[in-house]
Simulated assay, not measured.
Amino acid sequence: MKSTEPISIREVKREARHLYHGHFKTAIKINIAPIIFTILNVITLLMMMYAIIMSFRGLSQMPSSTAVTNDNDSALQQVFSIVESVLSDAIQLIFIWTASWTLIEWYENPKELPTFKDALQIFNRGNFLHTLLLTIVQSMLIFLWTLLFIVPGIVKLFSYSQTYFAYKIDIENGTRQGQLTDYIKVSRRVMAGRKWELFLLELSFIGWHIIGILTGGLAYIYIVPYLNATRVSYSRHLFTLAMSESVAV
């Protein structure tokens, strides 16, 4: 299931723009949840940066005799913090996935415009609990890899990036893998030798992310739909190549 034919970054971006051409209001509508989450994340990041800067300024002005070490954080509080972080990531992943599934269907039927209800298909097609468990498992695995160091976590983030697409294929076919982790295994197989390629695709949006941060997150109203459609276009090419080579073998 491993494909070696390169996927053009320019081509998948072109496909994303073509899909949205003349229908950007629809693009915003089906991506509204990921847009909101991204803007909130940017605001949180900016507030954290401001707090860090102010804390450093405060420390520089504080007499050394007043410095006190705070050891009140208990192990239980840290566990709760980890659980909260994993669940938060999983919930955000759910909304990203349901928007991406809608984009998959839009690519398959470009003349049929999706509705806001389509963008919430994860809640009305009987897959929510199973999907929630899958996103929790994926978020937990990425978190555990990140504990080793930042780089392994990033590598696994790319390695697991196609889980949503593998799961969507089963939903459309009315089938299901034996275990939740089987979808992650499928993602790992199709991404073997592809992680650098996907990294370059994500890196090509660095300028857009800078604009998004500088505008306090507002520019993500445009960036998130464009980015998500590009990712889905990449996934479509990836699985088409992987399946064709699998059949050829």
Rank of each mutant, 00 (worst) to 15 (best):
K168P: 04
V68F: 10
L227W: 15
R17Y: 06
N31I: 04
W97V: 10
Y160Q: 05
L241C: 00
S85D: 10
Y222A: 10
R57G: 15
A27S: 03
M48E: 07
Y222M: 05
A119Q: 02
T135K: 06
I82F: 13
L46S: 02
V151M: 05
F205A: 02
G22V: 02
I154R: 04
I82S: 07
S100E: 08
M49W: 13
S246Y: 15
I53W: 11
R14S: 10
E84H: 13
F37G: 03
I104H: 09
P63D: 14
F24A: 01
I91L: 10
N228S: 11
T215H: 06
P6D: 04
I9V: 09
T230F: 03
S64I: 14
L93R: 15
N70P: 00
R176F: 11
I91T: 08
Y220C: 09
W106C: 06
V137T: 10
S64A: 15
V186A: 11
Y183K: 02
V190I: 08
A248L: 13
N41D: 13
Q92W: 09
N70L: 09
H23Q: 08
I104R: 12
A67P: 07
L87N: 07
Y164C: 01
L238G: 00
W106M: 05
G22A: 07
R236S: 11
L129V: 15
S8V: 00
S81A: 14
S64H: 15
H18D: 12
V190D: 03
A99W: 09
N127V: 15
T240N: 15
I211K: 01
Y160G: 06
M54S: 15
G216S: 06
I206H: 04
N109I: 08
V186P: 02
L238Q: 04
E202K: 14
D71C: 12
L214C: 07
F128M: 09
A119W: 03
Y167Q: 08
I28S: 00
M1G: 14
F95M: 08
Y183H: 01
T240W: 10
L198G: 03
L147W: 05
S233A: 06
T131Q: 14
I122W: 05
L201R: 00
F123K: 03
D71I: 14
L141K: 00
V83N: 01
A27D: 00
V186N: 08
V12M: 00
Y107T: 06
S64C: 12
W97C: 10
P225W: 02
F128Y: 09
Q162F: 07
F80H: 08
I7V: 06
H237N: 15
L148W: 08
A75Y: 14
R57W: 13
S235M: 06
N72E: 14
F128G: 05
T146E: 04
D118T: 09
Q179T: 09
L238V: 01
K185F: 11
W196M: 14
K2R: 13
L134Q: 04
V155I: 15
F143I: 02
R17E: 12
Q92N: 11
R17F: 07
T146N: 00
L203T: 05
F158Q: 05
L141P: 05
Q179S: 12
V68C: 08
M191I: 02
S74R: 01
Y20D: 12
H237D: 12
P225Y: 01
A51P: 06
L46Y: 07
L129G: 11
L113C: 04
L227M: 11
K111V: 09
L103N: 08
K185W: 12
K29Q: 10
